[in-house]
Design a protein around this nucleic acid. Structure first.
Length: 942
RNA sequence: GCCGAAGUGGCGGAAUUGGUAGACGCGCACGACUCAAAAUCGUGUUCUCUCGGGAGUGUGGGUUCGAUUCCCACCUUCGGUACCA
């Protein structure tokens, strides 16, 4: 590898000396990056006199591998917008920081004993160097790092605010907990419509007032927006921590891919469910992609329906089920409980006990993964009890089955085999009755094929339409007191505890009664204590249990779990506005001015994690008056992933001979990955390959057409596949400006595509051409003060117009094309005019800022091009003289007619076109008949 | 299974509200300059053909004078989600 780099660099330098003597990207880029940093050119300060624009990148987790060429795609796009907006006169806030708490640094610490802060710091340093090398216009004075105590002081402070708040559904916002206490004192909890735990008993004011401090506190925990609970969580034994739902994919951890199991543990929770309705409802107002909104909508999973009460036969028990299809109530032929349901013991008849116990045991012990892999299999058991359908007074069997989830609705389902697939499969398997209630299903072998229609066999709703029947049944149930309208959500409260070291400590300690108490704001931050090892303790406590003498006021134990990765990232966009404020999370003046993010660029992978949690926290802070906009991210763009393009060679088995790709089928070969840096356009550099590994030193090659061709694969970029391309290598070879433009040229930013270094030459050529156009053979800068011709202006203004449109649509690939066309045209016209260059540079500067600054300076400007005003588009020069419009003759022939400028064909009266045709078509031979198709086209009959 | 996005030359990708499909770049071929190579510049490059044309934007239909664009059905790829009642 080392050998190869030297080799490649030599080849490359030779080329540069000969061909690009003048355009020295290294010197230019170094010069301007230093200039920008020294003069703090991108510093953004509150300026009420200027309009603001906030452009945000999703800040990275600084991993040990550094950035590869795929990471900066979104950063370059947002940088172009930032620089463009600055030229347009906006005061642009464009910050960067680091999401620095996280598992990889901690795993590394476990292996090496090195404090994660040290590796994190090293990685951040490397990231910053790489980012600066690309010439991104960040205001580094606003940098934040989530692991910095000065930052996480405020993460802890937000936690405290959540702890001291409850959600009032009547006012539809979070309120201070004091207002709840006042109501409890006055009238108990009757009439309070709060987001709270399910198991809250009713109590009166005198109950409340008679309670001890501990009793009151335990009750308040059921209302607070963050609260401890014994929750069934996703436990990952390999990582030794719990994971949030969005961190689990198909039963495996998203990071590391370790198996995850269900386990009941005491956890801090975030009452995000309180905000479910607003989180869904607000999506309509946001300028996000439909797919992104869809993902969040599905994740929140709002469904309309009702709860219905079923009395259990010969018990004084009522089972409540949730259904979205109360209209099918007359088709209920049995009822099902989740295996975790708490009443199973009571409801199982003695003769069924043994079988039920065995089933429940099996179902509950099964891991999430097993349960998922057996999705389509049917299993269940009869309890021996019966329930009574409140609409028909019919007795139906009560079953237990694992297709019913304890966590959704009430854990009880009314089964309608004739309209639900799962119920149908279950009923068929166990021979339970099936009663058809929807018209049209009478003769179907699978009645679930028709889900909506006219109700049949359904008592008083027979003949109604499904929709109508839903309304009627809900009304009926409400009137008779055995049901109520209900909206159910799929989303669960978020688990907020991690059994980990490298995260924000939860600012809580416990008093003797086991009640959590907040650490006062003025004592924050609660800093991470040193520990001798980053593993859980022998007694199974989180790593913080190892911290010696770590007690609040020397006597109260602290909370030992830490916050999850998403805590720090859920509000960082606010901190950037006022990054160094040590008295407030962010000053009201700063939030008032910068308000919300105008453009947010990042990957789709955060749809149900970061982007949802951030909206939740921001909404909460809005409710409590700390920020002034409900939604944090107005416009969101998801950049695609850049995959790696791996190259492979085919080695003959039992030989050191390699076969060129096209010939491989005639031999028995094995496919091996080779470093893509030794391959150019799938042609292998054989000398470099021989030096790559000692075992290949005497390799031989079977060539085709005199060269050795490699195969290729599109895969994730990774070191082990030798397909990583770093921005550093590209910048060294081609320069940052070329890299920036090439990444944009690759295609629409939303699209995922493999990286292919090959096409970068085209962009590099463009910049060299631009440079060459304004320099003579000896390297002297040449511009003239002549007034540009109309033709030259046309080339320029077309580009100005197109690029401005493109930036507004974020379609940068076509802008790059446009620049190429412009420079090619100017080269052909031999245009060295100052006026043209000046305007072109301003338009180009967001894309290729270094070369633009350099030429700008050569033009004699003292101020950075950042401060230059974006040139106005002058339509005078771009006007076409005429346009052509297709004409139909005799309904068949087609020709074109040329029209004067300024008239869109659709704006011209069809008759006018017809007249033109009469005059111009077939000179001397007037059409016999002109047919006008209204609003469309003229059909001329000759 | 459900939801969403997308299918255009050898490749990445262009194409306003339906109006000359393939912009721009890569690659390839030829030419100029070179002793030569690189670089640079120029020409050509969807396929096919009997050189007049014919076919062509995943497939099959439809609407239209006209469809990459709109409608219906299907196929493929990618992303999300999955016993959510």
């Amino acid at each position: 590898m080392g050998y190869f780099c030297i080799f490649a660099a030599q080849i490359h330098q030779k080329r540069i000396k000969v061909t690009m003597a003048e355009y020295n990207h290294r010197a230019i880029e170094e010069k301007w990056q230093k200039h920008w940093a020294d003069h703090k050119v991108f510093k953004a300060e509150i300026d009420p006199g200027r309009p603001k624009f906030y452009v945000l990148d999703m800040f990275p987790y600084p991993s040990g591998a550094g950035l590869h060429v795929g990471h900066p795609l979104g950063y370059i796009a947002s940088d172009i917008v930032s620089r463009f907006k600055r030229n347009k006169g906006f005061n642009v806030l464009h910050p960067m920081g680091f999401d620095a708490f996280g598992l990889p640094a901690e795993q590394y610490a476990i292996q090496t004993g090195q404090h994660p802060a040290i590796t994190t710091e090293q990685n951040i340093k490397r990231y910053k160097e790489q980012l600066k090398g690309i010439g991104l216009s960040y205001d580094w004075d606003k940098e934040v790092q989530t692991c910095d105590p000065k930052y996480y002081k405020w993460t802890q402070w937000i936690f405290s605010q959540l702890f001291q708040s409850w959600y009032n559904h009547d006012s539809a916002k979070a309120e201070p907990i004091e207002s709840l206490i006042q109501q409890f004192k006055k009238s108990g909890n009757a009439g309070i419509n709060a987001a709270r735990d399910e198991d809250v008993p009713a109590f009166t004011a005198s109950d409340w007032n008679s309670w001890s401090e501990s009793q009151k506190e335990s009750m308040l925990l059921k209302y607070r927006l963050t609260y401890p609970a014994d929750a069934l969580v996703n436990w990952c034994p390999a990582l030794g921590t719990v994971l949030a739902n969005d961190e689990v994919k198909d039963g495996f951890s998203e990071r590391g891919g370790y198996p995850v199991e269900r386990k009941k543990m005491r956890q801090w929770m975030m009452r995000i469910t309180a905000y479910a309705d607003r989180l869904v409802g607000n999506l309509a107002k946001l300028d996000w992609s439909e797919s992104m909104k869809e993902m969040q909508t599905n994740w929140i999973g709002k469904s309309y329906g009702c709860e219905l009460d079923f009395k259990v036969d010969s018990h004084d028990i009522t089972l409540t089920c949730f259904t979205t299809r109360p209209d099918t109530i007359f088709g209920v032929t049995y009822m099902v409980l989740a295996p975790e349901h708490e009443l199973i013991g009571t409801l199982t008849t003695p003769d069924r006990k043994e079988e039920v116990d065995a089933y429940v045991q099996k179902a509950v012990n099964r891991s999430e993964r097993e349960r998922m892999s057996e999705v389509k299999t049917v299993s269940g058991v009869f309890t021996g009890s019966y329930v009574i359908n409140p609409f028909t007074n019919e007795k139906v069997q009560l079953w237990i089955a694992d297709y019913v989830l304890a966590g959704y609705g009430t854990g009880v389902v009314m089964a309608v085999p004739s309209s639900d697939d799962r119920d149908f499969r279950f009923a068929t398997y166990y021979g339970l009755p099936i009663k058809r209630v929807i018209g049209g299903t009478e003769n179907l072998s699978d009645p679930t094929e028709i889900k909506y229609g006219k109700m049949i066999n359904s008592g008083f709703i027979t003949g109604m339409d499904s929709k109508e029947a839903v309304r009627a049944t809900i009304d009926f149930a409400q009137k008779n007191g055995f049901g109520k309208e209900k909206i159910n959500y799929r989303i669960r409260d978020a688990v907020f505890s991690r059994q980990r070291y490298w995260g924000e400590p939860v600012p809580v300690y416990f008093t003797e009664d086991g009640i959590p108490r907040l650490i006062p704001d003025n004592e924050l931050p609660l800093e991470l204590p040193p520990v001798n090892e980053y593993l859980p303790t022998e007694t199974g406590e989180p790593p913080l249990g190892r911290a010696e003498d770590w007690l609040y006021k020397n006597k109260h134990p602290y909370e030992l779990t830490t916050m999850p990765g998403w805590a720090g990232s859920s509000w960082y966009f606010l901190r950037y506005m006022d990054a160094h404020n040590d008295r407030k999370m962010v000053s009201p003046d700063a939030v008032k001015y910068w308000n919300s993010v105008d453009l947010y660029i990042g990957g789709t992978e955060h749809a149900t994690g970061h982007l949802l949690y951030s909206r939740f926290w921001n909404m909460f802070l809005f409710d409590r008056g700390y920020v002034f906009h409900e939604e944090p991210f107005q416009k969101l763009v998801n950049q695609g992933m850049i995959q790696g393009r791996s190259n492979t060679v085919y080695k003959m088995k039992d030989s050191n001979k390699f076969i060129s790709s096209g010939l491989k089928d005639s031999y028995d070969t094995i496919e091996l990955h080779v470093d893509v840096n030794m391959v150019d356009n799938d042609k292998l550099d054989m000398e470099a390959f021989k030096k790559w590994r000692p075992e290949y030193a005497n390799a031989t090659f079977e060539l085709e057409n005199g060269e050795f061709k490699c195969g290729y694969l599109v895969e994730k970029m990774s070191k082990s596949k030798y397909n990583t391309v770093t921005p550093d290598a590209m910048i060294e070879k081609y320069g940052a400006d070329t890299l920036r433009m090439y990444e944009m040229f690759l295609g629409p930013i939303e699209l995922s595509k493999p990286w292919n270094t090959h096409g970068i030459d085209g962009v590099a050529k463009f910049l060299r051409k631009l440079w060459a156009l304004f320099h003579d053979n000896t390297g002297n800068f040449i511009v003239t003060n002549d007034k540009p011709t109309a033709e030259e202006y046309k080339a320029l203004y077309k580009t100005i117009q197109k690029v401005e449109q493109d930036i507004n649509n974020l379609s940068f690939n076509t802008s790059v094309s446009e620049f190429m066309i412009c420079v090619n045209t100017l080269t052909q016209l031999k245009c060295h005019k100052k006026d043209v260059l000046e305007k072109l540079l301003i338009v180009l500067s967001p894309f290729a800022p270094h070369i633009a600054e350099e030429l700008w300076e050569k033009l004699g400007h003292k101020e950075s091009i950042i401060k230059a005003a974006y040139p106005e588009f002058n339509p005078e020069y771009v006007k076409e003289d005429s346009f052509e419009y297709p004409i139909m003759i005799n309904g068949k022939l087609r020709t074109k007619i040329t029209f004067e400028l300024g008239k869109n064909p659709r704006e011209i009266e069809a008759e006018t076109i017809a007249n033109e045709v009469v005059q111009k078509w077939l000179e001397g031979k007037a059409p016999k008949k002109v047919v006008v198709v209204p609003g469309k086209i003229v059909n001329v009959v000759v």
